[in-house]
């Protein structure tokens, strides 16, 4: 792990805006921000681990629990008016996940998020980086089935 994190940090060495980019790459690589990564990043950027954690923990995108896929259901005002709560309920029941939790098999994390800018096709959700709109509970579950392998 240490080797891989070092490679990621080096990739950002000629950039002025480093920390957010490094954290993104670490999360892409491991599916979350491991505790050890915080220490390694801190050492290489010559800041304290507390400072790295301070930043990482502020942003809701960065995760400290591992999951293979992250479902982010939009519960912004427009999606909410168009039935996002039914989508959330269906996903919770199907995978037995709570808001902010991870399914027992580690496959899905569920997050209820604010507006994801897809108000022209509500209700909408993101699965990892892919966005899906005009959802019904059935359609949302069908989409997620595609991520089960």
């Amino acid at each position: 792990m240490e080797e891989r994190i070092r490679e990621i940090i080096l990739k950002h060495s000629d950039r002025d805006a480093k920390l957010l980019g490094i954290l993104h790459d670490i999360q892409d690589e491991f599916g979350y921000i491991p505790r050890e990564a915080i220490d390694i990043v801190a050492e290489w950027l010559s800041i304290s681990p507390g400072e790295v954690y301070d930043t990482a923990s502020f942003y809701s995108f960065f995760r400290f629990k591992k999951a293979k896929h992250v479902i982010r259901v939009c519960n912004g005002i427009v999606c909410n008016l168009k039935g996002s709560e039914e989508i959330i309920r269906a996903i919770k029941e199907r995978y037995g996940i709570k808001e902010g939790g991870v399914s027992e098999d580690g496959l899905f994390a569920l997050e209820i998020v604010e507006c994801i800018g897809r108000c022209d096709g509500p209700p909408a959700m993101l699965v990892d980086d892919d966005s899906y709109g005009n959802l019904t509970p059935q359609r949302a579950l069908e989409i997620l089935r595609g991520y089960e392998e």
Binding site: A17, K18, L19, L20, G21, L23, H24, L45, D54, T55, F58, Y59, S60, F61, F62, V113, E114
Partner: peptide, 23 residues
């Protein structure tokens, strides 16, 4: 620079803090 899920970062000075690698 890609943000990380914070509405307040759309505010110009918060956005600058974020580019600088802070909350």
């Amino acid at each position: 620079v890609i943000g990380a899920g914070s509405y307040v970062c759309g505010e110009e000075t918060a956005l600058m803090e974020s580019i600088e690698g802070k909350r």
